[in-house]
Simulated scan of single mutants.
Amino acid sequence: MIRHLVLFKLNEGVSRDEPRVVAGARGFAELGALVPEVASWETGWNVSDRPVAYDFAINSSVADGDALERYLAHPAHQAAVAPWAEFATWVIADYEI
């Protein structure tokens, strides 16, 4: 099993209540159910105000590396992640569990 973590940082001047950000978060909230490879799926806004904190997170898992590659290439994933490039940056970690 592989855990796929993604942390998003909104760009300077972008707020989470902007319509494009709300739509982006909704797209990620729905994504887990659209991709067969996804074994578990959680998303949410950060509740911490620490300076090092990111703004939004995805915590998911897939069966193996092949499943991760299929998930990343899935059209629903591509469609969900594309808008985020306009208003955020992100980091990822994929590790075996």
Score class of each variant (00 low, 15 high):
Thr89Ile: 07
Asn11Leu: 09
Thr89Trp: 08
Leu72Thr: 08
Asn59Gln: 03
Val14Gly: 01
Arg16Gln: 09
Ala93Glu: 13
Ile97Pro: 08
Ala39Arg: 10
Glu86Met: 03
Trp41His: 01
Leu10Ser: 06
Val22Pro: 12
Ala82Phe: 12
Val91Asp: 10
Glu30His: 00
Asp64Arg: 03
Val21Phe: 13
Arg16Met: 07
Glu42Phe: 09
Gly32Asp: 04
Asp66Leu: 01
His74Tyr: 14
Thr43Lys: 09
Glu86Gln: 14
Ala25Asp: 00
Tyr95Leu: 09
Asn59Pro: 00
Val22Ile: 15
Met1Asn: 10
Val22Gln: 14
Leu68Arg: 07
Leu34Asp: 00
Ala80Gln: 07
Ala53Glu: 14
Ser40Tyr: 04
Glu18Ser: 10
Ile97Tyr: 11
Asp17Lys: 06
Gly27Cys: 00
Ile58Gly: 10
Asn59Met: 04
Asp94Trp: 07
Lys9Val: 11
Ser40Lys: 04
Ala25Glu: 06
Ala88Cys: 03
Ala85Lys: 09
Tyr54Ala: 10
Arg16Pro: 02
His74Ala: 07
Trp84Phe: 11
Arg20Ile: 06
Leu34Val: 00
Trp45Phe: 14
Asp49Cys: 07
Ile97Glu: 14
Arg20Asp: 06
Ala23His: 07
Ala76Ile: 05
Lys9Trp: 15
Ala80Glu: 08
Phe87Asn: 06
Tyr71Pro: 01
Leu34Met: 02
Leu5Trp: 11
Ser60Trp: 05
Val81Ala: 13
Leu31Gln: 00
Glu12Val: 13
Arg20Phe: 08
Val14Thr: 08
Arg20Gly: 01
Ile2Phe: 15
Gly27Asn: 09
Val35Pro: 02
Val62Arg: 02
Val52Gly: 03
Glu96Asp: 15
Ala82Gly: 10
Pro83Arg: 01
Pro75Phe: 05
Val81Lys: 02
His4Asn: 08
